[in-house]
Simulated assay, not measured.
Amino acid sequence: MTTGGALDDGRTRRRRLAVVAGLVLAAALLACVILALGMFHVKHPEGAAAAALPDGSSPAGSALGLPDGASAAGSASAIPANAEAGALAGRVGELVITCALAAVVEELLFRGLLLGWIARLGRRRGWRAPVLAAAVLSSAAFALLHGLPAPGMPWPADGLAWASIALKVSQALLFAIAMAGLRLESGGLGAPIAVHGAFDLLYFGPSVLATGAFPLTYICASPAEWAALGASVVVLLCPAALAWRAMARGVLPYDDDQD
């Protein structure tokens, strides 16, 4: 009877982990689609191909420094195909490596060291819900860190920029709670690292592949960025709620620290 109950608990936990991971990745995929559509619209505005400057040259040709009457088509044909393929491969490599490193470092720091340290501290201090408190505090630290401007960049100067930062902090908080739930339910860091890396790949993929660089700021600069960020926040509400329920039970890791 006990064995059957343990098996049922294990199946329930695996289903819950799959739901949380699936919803987190769905948020990233939805944001990825919105960003990709927005970038396609920017790269291919209506009438751009037919537009011309007063002197008869095309905007693309002028931007590339081509002679009057020249278009970007002739220049593009001169670019070797293997050079374009190499540039794309470089962007893909940078995307994968950066997302993998970020996932490993952030999960080790926030869901490994910080969450574990606060949970053990709370147990020693006799907190009522040390695991839940550890998850909340480590998630709050993760969210606030994602609201800081990049080194060398000024703080936002207008209300709209602050609104996008607040939305980004909300997204990071919901994401961190979901990752804390994955860490506590799975008992290790493998699941949150994998989901975190996949989320970043999907979320940042369109912009990195289109521009060749990660964004320097989380301030939204276009309707597509606002839509992608808002969509991910909405979808992340469900996995964060599921993770919160799991963490509220105050069990799983760190039980060996109890007297």
Rank of each mutant, 00 (worst) to 15 (best):
V233I: 01
D259R: 14
A85Q: 13
S164E: 00
G10N: 10
R124D: 09
A178P: 06
A248Q: 08
A176Y: 03
A163F: 09
T211M: 01
A180E: 04
A210Y: 13
A135T: 04
G38D: 00
Q171F: 15
F199A: 03
A176C: 07
G250N: 12
G90L: 05
R15W: 08
A81E: 12
L201I: 08
I34H: 12
K168R: 08
L30Q: 06
S207H: 02
E185P: 02
A243G: 05
S222H: 13
G212R: 03
P130W: 05
P149Y: 12
G250L: 08
C220K: 04
I97T: 12
A129E: 02
A135N: 06
A228I: 01
A243D: 01
A213R: 12
A119S: 10
A246L: 00
C99E: 02
A157H: 06
L182I: 02
L160T: 15
I165C: 07
F110Q: 03
F110T: 00
R120T: 01
V105C: 15
L132Q: 11
D256T: 05
P54R: 11
P223F: 10
S75N: 14
D158G: 15
A228Y: 08
V195D: 06
T98V: 12
C32Y: 04
L30E: 07
L173M: 02
A157P: 05
S164H: 05
K43E: 15
R91I: 00
L202H: 06
G197E: 06
A6I: 10
D55H: 10
V104K: 02
P253K: 01
V195R: 03
L30R: 05
P156F: 04
D55P: 07
F40M: 07
P239Q: 07
I79D: 10
A140I: 10
L113F: 14
L35V: 04
G188S: 03
R125N: 04
R11K: 08
T3W: 09
L236W: 13
S232N: 04
L184W: 12
T2M: 14
I34T: 09
L23R: 09
S170P: 03
A178F: 07
N82Q: 14
L113K: 08
R125I: 02
G93Q: 05
L7H: 11
A213L: 13
D55Q: 08
V208A: 04
R14W: 14
D158A: 13
G205L: 03
A248S: 08
S139C: 10
T3D: 09
Y203S: 00
L114W: 13
S207C: 01
G5F: 12
W117R: 13
D255A: 08
I34V: 15
R183P: 01
A163R: 04
L37K: 05
L108N: 10
L109D: 10
L201N: 07
G187N: 05
L29Y: 15
